[in-house]
Amino acid sequence: MKIAIITDAWSPQINGVVKTLEQTVRCLRAEGHEVLVLEPTEFSTMACPGYPEIRLSLLPYRRVKAILSGFSPDAIHIATEGPLGFAGRRYALKNGLNFTTAYHTKFPEYLEARTGIPAKHFYPAMRWFHSSAKAVMVSTDSVISELQAKGFGNLVKWSRGVDMSVFGSDPPRNKKEGADPVFLFVGRIAVEKNLEDFLGLRLPGEKWLVGDGPALENLADRYPDAIFFGSKTHAELAEIYRMADVFVFPSKTDTFGLVLLEAMASGLPVAAYPVAGPMDVLAGCEAAALRNDLLEACLTALELNPKHAIAHAQQFSWQHTTGQFLRNLHPNYAPSTNRAITGNSMHASH
């Protein structure tokens, strides 16, 4: 098929949305599909307030229209609720085309964390954005249930994977007996990640944090005993995972948490809160400690067997999740013919 993916999140950004889309595009192309990615580097942009690494496209509709018209995609997927996502949605609706969307990020909760305005005030806009999609792809069953309770419809499962060739290629290092343990966080250094719950713990050993973000400078100043590494490449990150003892995930707003799979693939037991995201990803995992008391979770995870973490991560593959993605699409045309057919009949036969 010819598949158009429209996203406001793309390289050089480093986050779960970008990783998911990059791996999905790689797998789609490997299976012979032609994939067009409309992303911010092709447009005039401005920095997102508070997140300068995120670029917002300026008045992108005319260019989005021209590119999509020239490409004539069999299927359209809108990945984000940003300027490009809105432009792609507008184009599809004006031309009577089916499209799918994805709910990658709990933006209402993120906005509440940054503004203090309750998340419930932002949900109507999110519900409106996704309401015209033939399917809304969501990463976990818990988030599907949450969104259904908030009036979202057409929700379908689209899980996530991990590249075992990068994060599971080498065994975890043998730790020196008596050495201080290392508690690691990887992700955006931002208020919505709830990092102060982790940084404020009285833990034996060291706290390491990998990632960039708007709160990095402030938190590094306030917590001088923690080690902040900044952004790292995949290869460097894989090495850091192998040097740690426990992966700590204090976020309460992530819809999935790709880093959970990366950490487990590297042999790291996980400490997290029992909330949507971790509860789904870590279900049945013997190397996960989910507790309302994060300190208790960290100390419990320290005693868990790394082999169980690796075995759990091996259940997740990008090839499997790409298959889910394809089955969720609602094409407008028969592949390679540009012959208009109904989205439902194409979806049923796909």
Rank of each mutant, 00 (worst) to 15 (best):
A133G: 09
S145L: 10
W10F: 15
G257K: 07
A271L: 04
P60I: 06
W208V: 11
A265T: 10
S165R: 10
F185R: 01
V37Q: 15
D221C: 13
E192P: 06
M279S: 14
A102R: 03
L195T: 13
F228E: 02
L28V: 07
L147F: 06
A66E: 13
V270T: 15
R291G: 04
S139G: 05
G16D: 11
A92W: 10
A220N: 13
G230I: 08
R188Y: 09
H130I: 09
T7Q: 04
P204Y: 08
A313Q: 07
A276Q: 07
L84T: 09
Q314D: 02
A235L: 13
K94R: 15
R242H: 05
P124Y: 01
G70T: 06
M164Q: 13
S72M: 07
Q315V: 10
F167M: 03
D74K: 00
G343Q: 00
F198A: 04
M264N: 08
N292E: 10
A289E: 02
T100R: 06
A265H: 00
V156H: 08
P250R: 01
P73A: 15
K94H: 11
G96V: 04
I14L: 11
E34G: 06
T253K: 14
H121C: 10
Q148K: 12
S72T: 04
Q23L: 08
G116H: 05
A288R: 12
F99T: 01
S72F: 05
D225L: 01
F99G: 02
K65R: 14
I14K: 12
K176Q: 12
L258T: 02
H320R: 15
L155A: 12
L290Y: 03
P12L: 08
R90C: 14
A265Y: 02
T100M: 06
G85K: 00
L299N: 06
Q13G: 03
N344M: 08
Q314L: 05
E42G: 14
L260G: 00
T41Y: 14
D141R: 08
E34S: 14
T321V: 11
V156L: 05
P224Y: 01
T45N: 13
L97I: 03
G211Y: 01
P108D: 04
E196P: 00
E196N: 08
V138H: 10
D212L: 11
M46N: 04
A265G: 13
L295C: 05
I67N: 11
V162T: 13
A135I: 05
P108L: 06
A226Y: 01
E239I: 09
A263M: 12
R63T: 11
P83E: 12
D245T: 02
I240Y: 06
A244P: 02
L68A: 07
G178S: 14
K106T: 12
T342Q: 05
E34C: 13
